[in-house]
Amino acid sequence: MIEAVGLTKRYGKTLAVDNLSFSVPTGRVTGFLGPNGAGKSTTMRMILGLDTPTGGSALIDGKRYRDLHQPLRTVGALLDAKWVHPNRSARAHLQWMAKSNKLPARRVDEVLEIVGLTAVAGKRAGGFSLGMSQRLGIAAALLGDPQVLLFDEPVNGLDPEGILWIRKFMHRLADEGRTVFVSSHLLSEMALTAQELVVIGRGKLISQSSTEDFVAQATENTVRVRSPQLAVLRGALGRLGANLRDEGENLVVSGMDCADIGELAAREGVVLHELSPQRGSLEEAFMQLTGDSVEYHTELTDGQTPATLVPAGK
């Protein structure tokens, strides 16, 4: 269980993380969702004791990270796959980490086997592809067989095969009863991977709920109606208190489902040409929720030079 209470991080005038409180339940995959620059990486660094919070605290099973004895046995983390010396072999990289937490040397070969890097264990990590680096980082996170795992944007930049591998791997870890906290800026990815969601924007908590609830809440279900007698139907729907919106020749109804509308149309003797349920996309919902909190808006609509794109937080 990871618990953040009033976590705050200020860099000069910028408030990167603003009074953030959430909890990551034990034995589940919890997604940490937010647009680029929302403060996800900073939060994760504070959980791991790498950055000192300006205010508040982050606790892992009730303890500060700094107070954990041999922390790799409790918490495994992959924040950046590039945090490896390019001239050091994958095996040597894992060996020193294992040694620092008094983990047996055979554990190194075990985790290499788990992530499928045994064949290249003696090769320089600098020559690894992003996917291989990512696997090496996961091997390092698994070294101490920890119950809690943190991954920061693990699928960023991976090819589809790599993404699928990571996704399956997360599920496997959760099936083993581990607590997995994984960040992403892609809701569609998180909807497939995570059971719980912590959503932040501009360093502030937007919501914490199960993924299902979040998706149901965030996406608006509507029904599109096409009919030559729209005016009649509009009046009947209006009397029942449905929300109506015109979309070209069609009518978009929210607050009623297809069955209700169909029955109403039959009662009123209205001919229907189309009656189709519409599901809002996850990305749209996410944009809607975090729209105000995206740090670097691009002004593409006014036809002027687009604003400079600023790279993500890592």
Partner: peptide, 18 residues
């Protein structure tokens, strides 16, 4: 300095918070 250059200092402090 090479540890700072390649980010391994973070892995170090993560493994050994002291």
């Amino acid at each position: 300095t090479s540890e700072y250059r390649f980010g391994t200092i973070r892995s170090t402090f993560q493994a050994v918070p002291n």
